[in-house]
């Protein structure tokens, strides 16, 4: 492959990974925007989501790589898998908030953040102990259609990942910009006390942020499985940290920033892997995180991050 073809191929790969990171980064940003809380349990909501997706596909009769669907059955299975995974993950996020974070709402300091680390490890160990430590094959019901673009190859599943991610992100963006509850979310992020005095029920806003963020993480978990053909109890930490970096890169609290940050991290990962070395991916990504935090602590689009007194 020529350098140009490699560049093209890694752009295709990077956009797919980036879409996944973006979906995951949105959950960090939504919750941070409202509670100024870094929610580490999000890492493993994503991981649990990928298992829920796996089980849903299996329940629909899709297992291994041998069941290939086309046409309506394919659309139906994918819709069902995304819907079940997203609803389950969303509810898991809401449960985490209700059970472990709401009682700490008025406790100052790092208590809530430490709690999210604890919840993250609980989810991690539940999956480890019930499913086991070995990776699970993740079924892929898509036909292996490939398109040649120059010297690069674009697979059908990558188009699917882009379309699904775009639709979800556009949906979220429109929700936050246009809906009544979305506006209440933005108002609460900008000035929670003032929002409350407009009659906003802040608990509802928080639940909405957790539901939406966790549902998107679930979709990200399904995309992880489709992209890598496996899932495992361990996947939450690497993907979660990279997505968190994406959120910080875009300016944590900033919804469009998380989307762009996610895509950038995906591209950096694939380009770095291609042109430097895969083993150095994390060094590159986290060096970028450190550099951003040092030189532009509010992120690339940081003017939009919450400012609170």
């Amino acid at each position: 492959m020529s350098t140009f073809d490699l560049l093209l191929q890694q752009t295709i790969n990077g956009l797919s990974l980036g879409a996944m990171y973006a979906l995951l980064a949105l959950g960090f940003t939504l919750v941070y925007g409202i509670l100024e809380l870094i929610n580490f349990s999000h890492f493993n909501v994503f991981m649990v989501g990928s298992f829920v997706a796996l089980w849903t596909l299996q329940a629909l009769g899709i297992s291994g790589q041998s069941v290939i669907l086309t046409g309506l059955p394919l659309v139906g299975v994918l819709l069902a898998a995304f819907a079940v995974t997203m609803v389950f993950s969303g509810l898991l996020g809401v449960a985490i908030e209700r059970i472990s974070l709401r009682p700490l709402r008025n406790v100052k300091g790092p208590a809530a953040m430490i709690t999210t680390i604890g919840v993250s490890y609980i989810l991690f160990n539940i999956i480890l102990l019930t499913v086991g430590a070995d990776s699970k094959n993740f079924p892929n019901p898509l036909p292996t259609a490939r398109f040649q673009i120059g010297g690069a190859i674009l697979e059908l599943r990558e188009i699917l990942i882009w379309v699904v991610s775009l639709v979800l992100m556009l949906g979220l963006y429109l929700f936050v910009q246009k809906s009544r509850l979305g506006k209440a979310m933005r108002a609460t992020a900008q000035d929670p006390e003032a929002a409350r005095m407009m009659g906003v029920e802040v608990d509802r806003v928080i639940i909405t942020a957790f539901f939406l963020g966790s549902a998107l993480a679930g979709a990200g978990g399904l995309i992880f499985g489709l992209y890598y053909n496996f899932t495992s109890f361990i996947i939450g930490f690497t993907a979660g940290l990279r997505a968190f970096t994406a959120a910080v890169l875009g300016g944590i609290g900033n919804v469009p920033g998380a989307m762009i940050g996610g895509v950038l991290i995906g591209l950096i990962e694939t380009m770095g892997g291609q042109f430097i070395a895969t083993a150095w991916t994390d060094v590159i990504i986290f060096s970028i995180l450190v550099l951003v935090l040092v030189f532009k602590p509010t992120g690339l689009f940081g003017t939009l991050t919450p400012t609170k007194s």
């Binding site: 009544r180 209440a184 933005r186 108002a187 000035d191 003032a194 407009m198 009659g199 906003v200």
Partner: peptide
């Protein structure tokens, strides 16, 4: 004043009518 600083004037008025 405590307007929502990154929302438009119209959106601020909408927030006033939130209930």
């Amino acid at each position: 004043r405590r307007l929502f600083p990154r929302m438009t004037v119209f959106e601020n008025l909408e927030m006033g009518a939130y209930t």
